Amino acid sequence: MINQVYRLVSPRQFEISYKDHSINEPDCIVVRPTHLSICAADQRYYTGTRGKEALSKKLPMALIHEGIGEVVFDPEGELSPGTRVVMVPNTPVETDDVIAENYLRSSKFRSSGFDGFMQDYVFLRRDRFVVLPGHINSYVAAFTELVSVAMHAISRFERKSHARREAFGVWGDGNLGFITSLLLKRKYKGCKVYVFGKTPFKLDNFSFADATYNINEIPDDMAFDHAFECVGSVGSQYAVNQIIDYIKPEGSIALLGVSEYPIEVNTRMVLEKGITLIGSSRSGHADFKATVDFLSENPDVVEYLETLIGSVNEVKTIGDMISTFEKDLTTPWGKTILKWEI
């Protein structure tokens, strides 16, 4: 079977390439992407801000690692054509009894040196998808991967932090901060969730939080048991150090924001307070399964996540791809969804 792959070959330039793939491999299913979602990492490649060295190593490459699709063919006959699935971008090539699949250095990740979901068809191993219940909104399901990242971070927090979980601080008023705050509020019944950001209209969307604060107007008596940093970039330095100032002794800080450069951390107070820093990156199949189950069991969470749908864009041509990525750059809030009809 000849498959068309839409690869970024240089900043802001896509080209079609063709790959031959067998459809009769018993360990794979064939999926037609239907709804995709743009991530900030995709934009760094698209705009060329990822860095010349990284671009030279990874391009040409199909972008996007967030998406769902419909089963076209299952050589084993276990899945009917039309079955909706969430596609898992992390692709391990080995297993480890201690290290999770998303931390193994040998694992491949779609749209990061390995073709993403901007293809006519995606060939998925049987451990690289989760069947999606029919009642979950497709536009929300398109960014299941981002929700699974927050779910994974919370699962790591649960294993590594102390048991007092009465109040949480979340730094970051963007998509990841919204999702993380929402999951914390639903998973820990009766807890307080305080959100800290710098953009008033974004903070207005956190209606489920117990309180929201501008990072320049935090009350002196603010305190919480644990915190999640969802800022990233250079701003993560200021976020982490603010958290260190307000967190209670022996609390934990889950780090989710990605920074391209090293940041300075007030390690003196980390030591004095006995703070635990927990790094978290990407997610694996188990996190996707937990996420889909959680969304299925909590329809109100899906309704809140619908507020993150920034725009829905039909993509039928390469020109549509470019215009959608350009539109995403100017979208101030939420996720840009591609209705994949090419």
Rank of each mutant, 00 (worst) to 15 (best):
M1D: 08
Q4S: 14
Y6L: 05
S10Y: 06
D27A: 08
C28K: 11
I29V: 15
V30W: 05
V30Q: 03
V31I: 08
V31A: 00
T34W: 03
I38Y: 09
Q43V: 08
Y45Q: 07
Y45S: 09
Y46F: 15
T47E: 13
R50C: 11
K52W: 05
A54S: 14
L55W: 12
L55K: 08
K57F: 12
L59T: 11
A62V: 12
I64W: 09
H65T: 14
E66D: 13
E66T: 11
I68Y: 09
I68P: 07
E76V: 09
E78C: 04
P81I: 11
R84K: 13
R84P: 00
T91Y: 12
D97G: 15
E101G: 06
N102H: 15
L104N: 01
L104W: 02
R105C: 07
R105T: 12
S107I: 07
D115W: 08
D120Y: 10
D120F: 10
Y121P: 02
R125Q: 10
R126C: 11
V130C: 07
N137G: 06
T144H: 13
E145C: 12
E145N: 13
L146M: 12
V147D: 04
A153P: 02
I154Q: 05
A163R: 12
A163S: 15
A163M: 12
A163T: 14
R164M: 11
R164P: 03
G169E: 04
W171I: 04
W171G: 02
G172N: 05
N175K: 01
G177C: 09
S181L: 04
G190Q: 08
C191Y: 03
C191P: 02
F201M: 01
D204C: 06
F206G: 00
F206S: 02
S207M: 06
D210T: 08
N214Q: 14
D225I: 11
V231I: 10
S233F: 07
S233H: 04
S236E: 13
A239S: 15
V240H: 04
N241M: 08
E250H: 15
G251V: 10
S252Q: 04
L255I: 12
L256S: 01
V258K: 01
S259D: 04
N266M: 07
E272L: 13
K273T: 05
G279R: 10
S281V: 13
H285V: 14
D287Y: 07
K289E: 14
K289Q: 14
N298Q: 00
Y304M: 02
L305T: 06
S311D: 15
V312W: 02
E314Y: 01
I322K: 07
S323K: 08
K327E: 14
L329Q: 10
K335S: 03
T336H: 06
I342E: 02
